[in-house]
Design a protein around this nucleic acid. Structure first.
Length: 557
RNA sequence: UGGGGAUUCGUCUAAUGGUAGGACGGCUGACUCUGGAUCAGUAGGUAGAGGUUCGACUCCUUUAUCCCCAGCCA
């Protein structure tokens, strides 16, 4: 029950108190998504908070779909959410539930409230209900239907269930206090009539419970002790407690709601509504577009579940609004992949280099270590021959100061191979550099006796004869501004360069054997995810995140 | 302007009346066959004003600012 090594937070403090006071003798949490969209990294924070809290206390974690609004919810989302949460690493074992599975019990408890005189059927329409509710600064007034008899209420409610009334004609409301300064307590609606097909219960029901009513009771049904939710439910807590107290749950069977701040991340949006808009307006290809902050998007991008778990722990949890720097997420994946990903060489924008003094037709095999951070990762064979490609950006005819790469007359090392010198620059009719003529020093082969010669720069390269032509997708932030959520006008803040597709990238031969799903470090460039292999055998790589790049930072400064 | 919540380095988060600490980011330098990684160092904060106290991020008063609530959404 120690919190020392997992980081403490105010929720654990609260749970510790509850355990110490004897209010609960166990911990049981849940994550309650509505199946009306995809899970994003903000949900990941909530999922992992609930799951890790249960783990920490040796308790249980449930997954429950909060499916009380049939017109918004779909089985497709249920499946996608299960898939995402499973991938993330939260385990609910056999405790997968649906609020719709409790419809009968919820209905019975609602009849109980009517019988106790604590709920009534109200015939006001939507507009009237709003008028009677009052405003933020003025109290509401009682519905004219508030004093109906128990018998009439029971009869009407049963007929609501039986389908005798049209949508919107009647609702069941709790009888609490129309003058409460907390608007949630002004006789909230418990049930509304919806003649809609539910994705699980079909047409069995035509009345559906509201969140405020179904949520506390569903938590209680499942034996949840700590119901963690986001901060906007803070002023729903009195109502959460009211329903539990008035439906017969004893104190020890009543869950406790604890609110925490939802996650915001720089350079992205997190509301389901805005993510949906990105999809609908075709700013992205879909919910799982690798630029999306959805779990499915991050997964396709190449993020690992463990990096997201680590992120969730690192950012902590509190009640104050906050916006986490995207750099923290990027740090988490870099940190993991630095130690686990094999290095390979890939040239994104190729520039041909002919090594004029290297024998034509000769190929030699070099041995290059897979991961300098991890000797156990071993080495691989990399072929070298007279023609290679280097990164176009690694050559400049007229370099600025401190440019450590290849320049006319200059020397660089080709990683794992030889030191070369640029003798000639070949240009096309328009003056574009199309080829470099270089010479190599046979004495400088890596690992050789005379390989100690120092040069300023080391470049990655691929053998022209052996390289695998690949598609590389460079992803960047979807938005150009740090807080895109503040704007409704996506068009002006969308990053036009959020995706760059390079069809002509050349990757070293060893990738030919690699399976989709493998993550690599393209040396000097970043971490990449081999997402798939296309029909014609071309690998398709997604850039997960670039390497930290002090050179480009110097350039900007 | 009713009710609720919040405010600690640039950012996120600890300190629960007793040395304001960590992480990311920044900056220096070392090292480097990745301008990566690593290592060493460094700058940087309790929203303001009062009060209680030997001692206040913490308690009290007050001001300011931000967020949420008037769905038959969740």
């Amino acid at each position: 029950m120690s919190t020392a090594d997992t980081g403490s937070n105010f929720i654990h403090t609260q749970i510790n108190e509850d355990l110490a006071s004897g209010r609960y003798d166990r911990v049981h949490t849940r994550f309650p998504p509505e199946p009306n969209g995809y899970m994003h990294i903000g949900h990941a924070k909530a999922i992992l908070l609930n799951y890790s809290t249960a783990q920490l206390y040796g308790g249980k974690f449930n997954l429950r779909f909060d499916d009380t609004n049939p017109v918004k919810e779909e089985t497709e989302f249920v499946e996608a959410i299960i898939d995402d949460i499973h991938w993330l690493g939260a385990e609910w074992q056999d405790r997968l539930f649906f609020t719709s599975g409790y419809f009968e019990r919820l209905y019975e408890l609602a009849e109980g409230l009517i019988i106790d005189g604590k709920a009534y059927v109200c015939d006001l329409d939507k507009d009237q209900t709003r008028e009677y509710r009052g405003t933020l600064t003025e109290p509401g007034k009682d519905s004219p239907y508030r004093s109906r008899s128990v018998e009439e209420n029971l009869d009407l409610f049963r007929r609501m269930r039986a389908g005798e009334f049209s949508e919107g004609s009647r609702v069941l409301r709790a009888k609490i206090d129309m003058s409460s300064p907390n608007i949630n307590m002004r006789d909230p609606v418990l049930y509304r009539i919806m003649h809609a097909e539910h994705h699980r219960s079909g047409d069995e029901w035509c009345i559906y419970p509201m969140y405020d009513y179904s949520h506390p009771l569903s938590d209680a049904f499942e034996g949840i002790t700590h119901s963690l939710c986001s901060i906007e439910y803070d002023d729903h807590r009195p109502l959460y407690d009211w329903f539990l107290e008035n439906t017969g749950f004893t104190a020890s069977d009543r869950p406790r709601q604890i609110e925490f701040a939802r996650l915001n991340l720089t350079y992205t949006v997190m509301s389901k509504r805005k993510l949906l808009k990105l999809v609908q307006d075709r700013h992205v290809a879909g919910w799982d577009d690798p630029r999306m902050p959805t779990i499915a998007g991050l997964r396709r991008r190449g993020y690992t579940a463990s990096s997201i778990q680590n992120f969730a722990e690192r950012i902590g949890v509190a009640r104050a609004d906050s916006t986490v720097d995207l750099a923290v997420l990027e740090h988490c994946i870099r940190e993991e992949l630095n130690s686990s990903a094999s290095r390979i060489m890939a040239v994104l924008k190729p520039l041909k280099v002919v090594i004029t003094n290297y024998p034509d037709g000769q190929t030699e095999t070099l041995h290059v270590e897979n991961n300098p951070e991890n000797p156990d990762a071993g080495s691989r064979e990399v072929p070298f021959c007279r023609e290679v490609y280097i990164e176009a950006d690694d050559f400049m005819e007229d370099p600025p100061r401190k440019f450590f790469r290849l320049v006319p007359g200059g020397e660089v090392r080709l990683k794992g191979a030889y030191i070369i010198r640029c003798d000639d620059v070949v240009k096309d009719a328009e003056g574009n550099v199309v080829e470099l003529r270089c010479s190599y020093d046979p004495e400088t082969r890596s690992g050789g006796a005379n390989s100690g010669k120092k040069v300023k720069g080391t470049l990655h390269w691929v053998s022209a004869k052996h390289a695998v032509q690949s598609e590389v997708r460079l992803y960047d932030n979807l938005f150009t501004v740090e807080n895109p959520g503040a704007s409704e006008d996506f068009a002006s803040i969308i990053n036009p360069d959020s995706l760059t597709v390079l069809g002509n990238a050349l990757v070293e031969q060893s990738v030919a054997d690699m399976a989709a799903g493998t993550r690599f470090q393209f040396m000097r460039q970043g971490y990449f995810f081999l997402e798939s292999v296309s029909q014609d055998g071309r690998p398709v790589f997604n850039r997960i995140v670039g390497l930290k790049d002090t050179w480009s930072k110097m350039q900007k400064a």
